[in-house]
Write a protein that binds this DNA or RNA. Sequence first.
DNA 1: GCCGTTTTCGGCCCGACTGTTTTCAGTCG
Length: 553
Amino acid sequence: MDKYQVARMLDEIARYIQLGETNPFKSRAFERAARRIETLERDITELVSSGELYSISGIGKGIGPVVTEIVTTGGASYLEELREQYPPGIFDLLRVPNLGLKKIGVLYEKLGVTSIDELEKAAKDNLVADLPGFGKKTQQKILDGIGFARKRESQFLLPRGLEVGELIREQLATIDEVEDAEVAGSVRRRLEIIRNVNVVVSTRAPERVIEQLPKFVADLEAVGETTVKGIARGEMPVLFHFTFPEDFGLALLRATGSEEFVTAFETKAGRKLKARNEEQLFEKAAIPFVEPERRENADDLKRKKRPSLVHPSDLRGTFHVHTTHSDGRNSVADMLAAARDRGFDYCGITDHSVAAYYAGGLSTERVKIQQAEIAREAKNVAPMRVFKGTEADILPDGTMDYGEDLDMFDFVVASIHSRFQMTEEEMTERILRALDDPHVTILGHLSGRRLLTRDGYRVDYDRIFDKAAARNVLIEINGNPQRLDVDWRWLRNAADRGVMFTINPDAHSIREMSHVISGTWVARKAGLTAKEIFNTKPVEEVEEWLEKKRLSR
DNA sequence: GCCGTTTTCGGCCCGACTGTTTTCAGTCG
């Protein structure tokens, strides 16, 4: 039982409490305790056995025994009681936008609503509008929200597809008749949102393979002469495309898509080509290889030679990393070690600025404490260079949080975290003003989008790119798979205007340092090469560039 | 539920927005 498992159970308790409890501070106490436990440096089991648990601020006579029970028995009777009190899947209702735990609690108490289907029926029967705190507009909003949630049900973030694809490949490898299997489709093209996973299976005996598929996927059905469809993990459609080994190249190309690309390729190639792999296929067709990420359209088929897209191994450092000083889950030491273990020559630490209260934004006093710790920890990861930065809020009027105090930092990521519903004109002006602040080094997650959750705010991209190029401000490619922001469809346009990019993880934990990889997907889809990405530069050049930027303040 | 040179009750991290209210609660970031 590690501290994260304890924290997860406390979080679950907190969610249940919100369903039925009017006092919002009780659930918040559990949440706060979860955060405290998550960020403990010491072993939780030790703290429990020594009784030191109660010296942790936020753990008293109510939560203390719960934590003790979890650590010693692996479960909590309080949580079991709560689970029995509510139907399983009640939290699924959270997928409806603008529906929170309070309202879900009321819907369950008064109407017995336990699922999205039941909620839809209740709203259509006009029962929701009469509930206390609800009304006609809320009822309609709920119905709209259900439509939104349903639409999203058939869409997945790319990492889910990669995960399922890898799992299926491993499972196929256990079947003797399978000679080879590759993930294709939108997952291979690294599209940010996918609907299914395509796998090309090379075999001489497709029937024998199909016989064994029910071990791995449910609801198997044929959807064409050479394709079988199933559902993995209860939700993800998987399409198995069968081919003989000598045709694997063409089968992989076709299953990878896009349709536009495949059609154009086959037209250009002129005839059906036999090839055991894709490289061979392109060679036979006398067409320079096109990376899967670049196959959304047929543009790259016109190229004379294969472009050298930026690769994760080109990255020598990164710049957007949170720690426990604000809303990160791991300490400065842990995050720096994670960067070093990734082979980085430099890493920029950025916690939130004071205006981001909800994310634990740092006052200038707390910045000093954070920076002292960074200075201490930097010695342990030398020769990796550590930069002291901040992710500072762009305030509604376009001025920067911290103001002149931004001088404290080696670099500044400027981001928007509030007032999303400004008009396009207002939002654009807000960002342009921030770009004029000489402290600003990087513009963070430009659109603010959360994939499958909310659209980004509307801005005039061209004006922002022009200003960023003129002011020598880097544009962040935020690699968080929920963001992947700026959208790759805009990047070429920005690059052509002379904008320089930095691929950042926006990491809130050690695990999320891997978001630099997802960031490179975005850059590759846009056709960017290493020389357009700032954090492929050697540390000396980066230091020099940042120093020059500092002197121009 | 937790905490206190505000010691046993009354506050708890802030602000915008929306809709349901007639002064505020829920949701979201």
